[in-house]
Computed example of a mutant assay.
Amino acid sequence: MRLDKYLKVSRIIKRRTLAKDFAESERVLLNGRVAKPSSEVKIGDIITLRMGEKTVVYEVLDIKENIKAADAGNLYRIIE
């Protein structure tokens, strides 16, 4: 699944266009490398988001195309 779509489906970022903007401004790392919005996300990948002074690291646990908002937290785990 594309990175921008995963961030939206998992509700880490609320809108896909915002997720795309994050990636294009080099604020998203995928397994330690700067990621493009079209980067492929797989189970076990590590996603790092830089939001101002704050950095949050997520591990991808599952990938689903459609999921209810209440279950979106099951797609990832916060590492830091």
Rank of each mutant, 00 (worst) to 15 (best):
M1C: 03
M1K: 08
M1H: 09
R2S: 06
R2Q: 10
R2A: 08
R2Y: 13
R2E: 06
L3P: 13
L3Q: 10
D4G: 12
D4V: 14
K5L: 15
K5F: 12
K5I: 13
Y6V: 12
Y6A: 12
Y6I: 14
Y6S: 11
L7Y: 09
L7S: 15
K8A: 12
K8D: 05
V9M: 08
V9W: 10
S10K: 04
S10L: 14
I12V: 12
I12G: 11
I12F: 08
I13P: 07
K14I: 00
R16W: 04
R16G: 06
T17M: 04
L18T: 12
A19Y: 12
D21Y: 13
F22V: 06
E24V: 05
E24H: 07
E24L: 11
E24S: 15
S25Y: 05
S25P: 03
S25E: 10
S25D: 09
E26A: 04
R27Y: 07
V28A: 10
L29D: 01
L29H: 06
L30M: 07
L30N: 01
L30S: 13
N31K: 08
N31R: 00
G32V: 01
G32R: 00
R33T: 00
V34I: 15
A35S: 14
A35K: 08
A35Q: 08
K36I: 14
K36G: 14
S38F: 13
S39H: 03
S39A: 12
S39R: 14
E40H: 14
E40D: 12
E40K: 15
V41Y: 11
V41H: 11
V41F: 09
K42T: 04
K42A: 06
K42G: 05
G44I: 09
D45Y: 00
I46W: 07
L49C: 08
L49V: 11
R50Y: 09
R50H: 05
M51W: 03
M51L: 07
G52M: 14
G52N: 03
G52Q: 10
E53N: 02
K54R: 12
K54Q: 03
K54A: 07
T55L: 06
T55Y: 09
V56K: 05
V56T: 06
V57G: 01
Y58F: 08
E59L: 03
E59R: 15
V60Y: 09
V60W: 11
L61N: 14
L61M: 13
L61Y: 09
L61Q: 10
D62V: 01
D62A: 06
D62H: 02
I63C: 01
I63M: 08
I63H: 11
K64I: 12
K64W: 02
I67P: 05
I67N: 06
I67T: 14
K68P: 00
K68L: 02
K68N: 03
K68Q: 05
A69G: 01
A69I: 11
A70I: 04
D71F: 03
D71E: 07
D71Y: 00
D71K: 04
A72K: 02
G73D: 06
G73I: 08
L75I: 01
L75P: 06
Y76M: 04
Y76H: 01
I78W: 06
I78A: 07
I78D: 02
I78Q: 08
I79S: 00
I79R: 11
E80M: 02
E80K: 04
